[in-house]
């Protein structure tokens, strides 16, 4: 029996979380004597997934699958699930995967768990641990149905290489016409997105105004990071809403999160707490963020950040 993963592509390239999904599925499959099948659309180099333990790669190359469409994609994935006699589907936590997760849960009559942070345990049926209450708690959940869908939280398992012999198949699915017509796509940033970034540099009201964001951007550039902000910063119009992170904004689960001039209100922390390493730069030693951070600098961002940029430049040039 195969575990199915949906490996998302962007312009033909696999998104990074595909490798994590594959690693997770491989680990589970080896334990349960199963195999791993991936489904992807228009991947330019599908066999890349064989480096992460995928045995079979269904890559449907079709102009009609070029852009994401929830109805069409969920139909294809559901067909693949049935053709592969699968019982477990693994999705990422990207916007698109979350979009189709609920639809697929009904189609496949599957118990669907999002924000999964553990491997399944079989000691008590089929259960996993997930994040809940916006990272304020963990929840252990049992899946009672025969089929299951796991939405893996980013960076919760990591990427592990496992070179495997794999076959690539191009399957033509029966595609119905889309209900949503995409008229245009506006990319806010040509850089890495908050969802995909390993490092996120975030600014708060302590930065005083939008004219000071060049510091945040320069720091992000050096680190190859995405930029983010606290809620009031986006409400004030200093930064676009798409950068708002926290409980009511985007979740962040990057490897490194750097908070500059952000107090660390409970709603902010809730959304960024699942990042692995947190750094805070704040003038106020009493700011709540210091309680949540791994590293902190008590100081004025206008002095600290330019110095940090200089130090990182030195570091980068001596490490290249």
């Amino acid at each position: 029996m195969a575990i199915l993963i949906f490996a998302e592509t962007y312009n033909g390239e696999f998104k990074k979380d595909c490798y994590e999904l594959a690693s997770y599925a491989y680990d589970l499959a080896s334990e349960k004597n199963m195999s791993v099948t991936a489904i992807c659309f228009n991947a330019s180099n599908p066999s890349e997934l064989s480096n992460f333990g995928v045995n079979k790669i269904i890559n449907s190359s079709n102009e009609e699958l070029k852009d994401f469409d929830a109805t069409i994609y969920s139909n294809c994935i559901s067909d693949a699930f049935e053709n592969e006699n699968s019982k477990i589907l693994i999705l990422s936590s990207s916007s698109n995967s979350k979009y189709i997760g609920g639809i697929l849960a009904i189609k496949l009559k599957a118990g669907y768990i999002t924000n999964v942070i553990s491997k399944p345990s079989f000691s008590n049926g089929f259960s996993v641990t997930r994040n809940t209450f916006t990272n304020k708690a963990y929840e252990k959940v049992n899946i009672l149905s025969e089929n299951s869908i796991l939405g893996l939280s980013k960076n919760s398992f990591g990427i592990k290489e496992n070179s495997t012999k794999s076959e690539v198949k191009d399957i033509k699915f029966n595609i119905k016409s889309a209900l949503n017509k995409v008229t245009s796509i506006e990319k806010m940033t040509t850089k890495v997105t908050i969802a995909d970034a390993d490092i996120v540099v975030s600014g708060g009201r302590g930065l005083k105004g939008p004219e000071n964001w060049h510091m945040v951007e320069d720091l992000a550039d050096i680190l190859g990071a995405a930029t983010a902000c606290s809620k009031p910063v986006s409400d004030l119009g200093w930064r676009p809403h798409s950068e708002h992170v926290g409980q009511t904004g985007k979740p962040v689960s990057s490897n490194l999160y750097i908070a500059i001039g952000i107090s660390g209100a409970i709603q902010h922390l809730a959304g960024v707490n699942s990042s692995k390493i947190k750094v805070v730069i704040n003038t106020d030693p009493e700011a709540p963020f210091f309680k949540a951070a791994d590293y902190g600098i008590v100081g004025d961002a206008f002095e600290v950040v330019p110095k940090l940029i200089e130090e990182l430049k030195n570091f980068k040039s001596s490490n290249n």
């Binding site: 949503n180 017509k181 995409v182 008229t183 245009s184 506006e186 806010m188 969802a195 798409s242």
Partner: peptide, 12 residues
């Protein structure tokens, strides 16, 4: 709709 890194405009 918001997509990772931008938005998509849809007619339906």
């Amino acid at each position: 709709r918001e997509i990772d890194g931008g938005k998509e405009n849809i007619s339906t």
